[in-house]
Amino acid sequence: MAGFDKVVSSYEEAMAGLEDNMTVIAGGFGLCGIPEGLIGQIKKMGVTGLTVVSNNCGVDGFGLGVLLEDRQIRKMIASYVGENALFEKQLLSGELEVELTPQGTLAEKMRAGGAGIPAFYTATGYGTPVGEGKEVREFNGRPHILEPSITGDFAIVKAWKADRYGNCIYRHTAQNFNPMAATAGKITVVEVEEIVEPGDIPPSQIHTPGIYVNRVIKGSFEKRIERKVTRSA
């Protein structure tokens, strides 16, 4: 790696430094826009005791779900975890802890974490189990709860294209949580479909500026579809 060139050539290099008990923030919504190869590398490394922050936890045998197979995740922070039988089993047996977080609050926790804002007030969750034990303050006549933001030791991100400097663009709704995740990792690793040269992506169309990105790797993706629904032509 020289200068701003962030491209690495192996998954080992991409995830080097990940250790037991670290916090990993992962982009993706369901199975859409997930860094498949980086998840595979975490599985291969066998690190355990992880706290994983992601909207969902994959499905049995795919996505983040594979990290449950060897009990690598100790705590999951997510908004919805309903697609995964192994998750359910480990949750009920107490091997896995889950912190359910409203989806918008989760996105904002990552955004704020990456933006250097340690906490924020939101009306979301006030008066519900999510608000229990949290500081309440009234703004404009309405109660809000104080939500701490989130940063991670690692952020794993899936982008469509990145240039060598780490400037990224996302494709369609595979964007989702990825731009926020990218800002919130001490080490942010982006797995992409295509690596291009600096200048190939017009500067004003870049979604994630390279300053947030530490490593870029070209991956190959299965892009499994969770619910295929069609209409007749």
């Binding site: 997510a78 908004s79 919805y80 309903g82 009920l92 359910l100 409203p102 989806q103 969750g125």
Partner: peptide
């Protein structure tokens, strides 16, 4: 078993 609130809490708050 609680599967999660997804975006529902944000939607009703907003």
């Amino acid at each position: 078993l609680v599967k999660g609130m997804g975006g529902a809490m944000d939607l009703v708050a907003g």
